[in-house]
Design a protein around this nucleic acid. Structure first.
Lengths: 169, 169
DNA sequence: TATTGTTATACTCTATAACTATA
DNA sequence: TATAGTTATAGAGTATAACAATA
């Protein structure tokens, strides 16, 4: 049998690199996929994509009209993506745009009563799924994992500048 | 019905739900985004998408002709997505399809010399980025995080069957 | 002039179904 | 009949640029 994975960082071909299975981006992707697989049916039941749900959830969390730019930050969506998503959600009467009195460029987004109802309807099932994960993984451990993930994400802020150089093809 | 009130599960509107910031999928997404932000420049320098890179990396890790289906599992890509990616990579002479002698339905994929060269060229920079993250986050902690993520991903296997019905394959 | 947000455009991935060619 | 893989198709997000309206 050929060596599938030698110890250390040497792959079969002699390329010095971590084994694929130890790639952090892959591990994060896998974990997220596994997690989302549990939540996705809740969303598809309501014809919501993950990103649409992120928007609704972010609005519900704040429970205040939110500027589009702020919403983009909260949901990790680019402005053009968010813009189209908002058009979609507005068309379904889940959110509404409101003009800002003192700055006509700005628009704020708020949940409609219908939008709030949808969130309220999904929330309990979402919590159920979450509690399942907690039960299987351990509540304390999960909280620790969340904290660690936040910290990993926070590392990035300002860290990537100057990180990669001499890569001018 | 008594709503559970633990570590601030009541949003502004009275929707019983975890705060947006404590959402596990969001935390995983954020952590992955922060991580990928560091790696992405390496890939765009070589005109590779994340998914294309996943394929090349998976092939380099195994360093053996790999069945398409197996590759799909390794890379977390659906067969149609993978199929198109392979067509693209084959067109750029980074991978090659080979027929399997004893089963004409099957095809195996292998890196070409060019493909190996690309991986070899990206690998050192990738390791540099990885070492930076390790240095900032702590090598021991990072290893622990990886293990925890793998375990979280593993929970899913067979766990969601009874949780939500209707998505059976 | 800089900003806020929307369109325009091109590309890619996701997801499901249908199809082919084997087995 | 089932399996492996590709095509077809529809839908959506990503990313960059260009744009309009406003500050």
């Amino acid at each position: 049998m050929a060596p599938r994975r030698r110890h250390g960082m040497i792959a079969g071909d002699g390329i010095a690199m971590r084994p694929f299975t130890e790639s952090l981006p892959m591990a994060l992707l896998q974990a997220r996929e596994a997690t989302m697989r549990r939540f996705r049916p809740l969303l598809t039941d309501h014809d919501l994509t993950e990103q649409q749900w992120r928007v609704l959830r972010a609005l519900a969390a704040v429970d205040e009209p939110t500027a589009v730019g702020e919403l983009a930050d909260h949901t990790f969506l680019l402005a053009p993506s968010l813009s189209r998503i908002l058009t979609n959600l507005e068309g379904r009467n889940l959110v509404e745009r409101r003009a800002v009195a003192h700055d006509q460029r700005r628009a704020t987004i708020a949940l409609t009563a219908t939008g709030r109802a949808v969130v309220r309807r999904i929330a309990p099932s979402s919590e159920t799924v979450y509690n399942q994960i907690e039960a299987e993984y351990g509540a304390v451990r999960l909280r620790k994992l969340l904290a660690d993930l936040h910290e990993l994400a926070a590392l990035d802020i300002g860290a990537q500048v100057g990180a990669i150089e001499g890569e001018a093809s």
